[in-house]
Design a protein around this nucleic acid. Structure first.
Length: 296
DNA sequence: CGTGTTTGACCCGCGC
DNA sequence: GCGCGGGTCAAACACG
C-alpha cells in the first residue's frame, strides 16, 4: 500500500478501461479491470480513490459488471439495480469477460451443489455442477456513509456475514425479501477508508420497490420496476430512485454524480441542482426520477 | 406471531 | 490433493 498511488490496499490500479469526468466537484474514474480477486469487490471493480479530488469529498466511482456468461438470468428478466448512497455511480457494460470473478460472484451457488439445503429459489437450479455459475449483472458503488446498509427502496434480509480477508470489516450478505426476486447484495466497508461503504448488487429485481421502509413516509410509490436503479442518498437524507436504466443496458453515460451525501444531501443524483456539467443528466433523470422527488 | 438478524457450520471453487 | 477464502444455509434468537 503505497499511499502514494492509491488509497486502497489490495486495490491495484487497474488499467482504466475508460474514464469519465464527472462534473462538478466530483470526478470519477471508472476502472474496469481484471484484477483477480485480490480483495474483493474492490479489486473487481478496481476502484481508486483520488485524494486529489479533494473537493469531492471522497468516494467516487464504481464499476459495474455485467455478466457475461451467458446471462442466463435465471428467472427474472427484469432489470434492476440499485445503488446507494450519494456516491457516484458509474455503470458500464463491458464485454470483456470478467470470468476472473469466479470466486466472487457467483450468484447462487448454493443450489447447484447442495441444493438440498434450502433450495433457494435462486436461479441456480439452472446451473449444474459442471457449469460455471452464471453471473448476473452486478455493479458496485461506494458511498461514504456511517451506516452499512443503505436504503434503496427494497427490503432486504440479511442472510450471512463473513469476515473477509483483506479487510477488518465483515462483509454482509443480503437478499431481497421478495421470494421471487433473486437479487442479492453485499455490503462491506473499505478497509482503507472505513467511512466508505461498498455495496455490490447482483441480479435484477422483478418487482418494484416497496417504498421506503423507514422514514419514507410515502415513498412507496416508486414505480420503477423496470430498472429500478435506485440510488440511495445518505441514509438520513432523501432517497431517490433511478429506473429506466434497463438493467442490463446501462447507458454509457455516467450516472448521477455529484451527489455528496454529506453535502447538502438534498440533491438527487444526477439532478445535480445546477450541474451544468452533467451532460444528459436531465435526460436520464428525467426518465427515472420522478419530478416530485427531484427536489427532495 | 411474523419478520429480520446473528452466527456457526457446511459446501464449493481456486490456487498452490 | 490440500488448504484457503468466499458464499450460503438454517437454527436460534431478538424485536415490533
Amino acid at each position: 500500500m503505497d499511499e502514494n498511488d492509491r488509497v486502497d490496499p489490495g486495490i491495484t490500479d487497474l488499467s482504466a478501461e475508460s474514464s469519465w469526468s464527472f462534473g462538478g466537484d466530483s470526478e470519477s474514474v471508472y476502472l474496469f479491470g481484471g484484477s483477480d480477486r485480490e480483495s474483493s469487490i474492490l479489486s473487481e471493480f478496481g476502484w481508486n480513490l483520488r485524494p486529489e479530488a479533494g473537493s469531492f469529498s471522497h468516494f467516487d466511482r464504481i464499476g459495474m459488471e455485467e455478466d457475461l456468461a451467458g446471462n442466463d438470468q435465471p428467472k427474472s428478466t427484469c432489470s434492476t439495480s440499485t445503488t446507494g448512497g450519494g456516491g457516484t455511480v458509474v455503470q458500464a457494460t463491458s464485454n470483456r469477460s470478467m470470468s476472473s470473478s469466479s470466486s466472487e460472484d457467483l450468484p447462487e451457488k448454493s443450489t447447484e451443489s447442495d441444493g438440498n439445503k434450502a433450495a433457494p429459489e435462486t436461479a441456480s437450479k439452472v446451473k449444474k455442477k459442471g457449469q460455471k455459475r452464471i453471473q448476473q449483472p452486478r455493479f458496485a458503488f461506494m458511498t461514504r456513509s456511517e451506516v452499512d446498509h443503505l436504503e434503496d427502496g427494497y427490503r432486504w434480509r440479511k442472510y450471512g456475514q463473513k469476515a473477509v480477508k483483506n479487510s477488518p470489516f465483515p462483509r454482509s450478505y443480503y437478499r431481497c425479501t421478495n421470494s421471487k426476486c433473486t437479487v442479492k447484495k453485499r455490503v462491506e466497508r473499505s478497509s482503507d477508508d472505513p467511512t466508505i461503504v461498498i455495496t455490490t448488487y447482483e441480479g435484477q429485481h422483478c418487482h418494484h420497490t416497496v417504498g421506503f421502509p423507514r422514514g419514507g413516509g410515502g415513498g412507496g410509490g416508486l414505480v420503477n420496476h423496470e430498472a429500478a436503479f435506485a440510488s440511495q442518498l445518505t441514509p438520513s437524507a432523501s432517497h431517490f430512485y433511478y429506473s429506466g436504466l434497463g438493467g442490463l443496458q446501462f447507458p454509457p453515460q455516467p450516472p448521477p454524480l455529484g451527489i455528496l451525501p454529506q453535502s447538502s444531501s438534498h440533491q438527487v443524483p444526477g439532478e445535480a441542482r445546477e450541474n451544468p456539467k452533467l451532460p444528459t443528466d436531465e435526460g436520464l433523470l428525467g426518465d427515472i426520477v420522478p419530478p416530485g422527488m427531484r427536489n427532495q
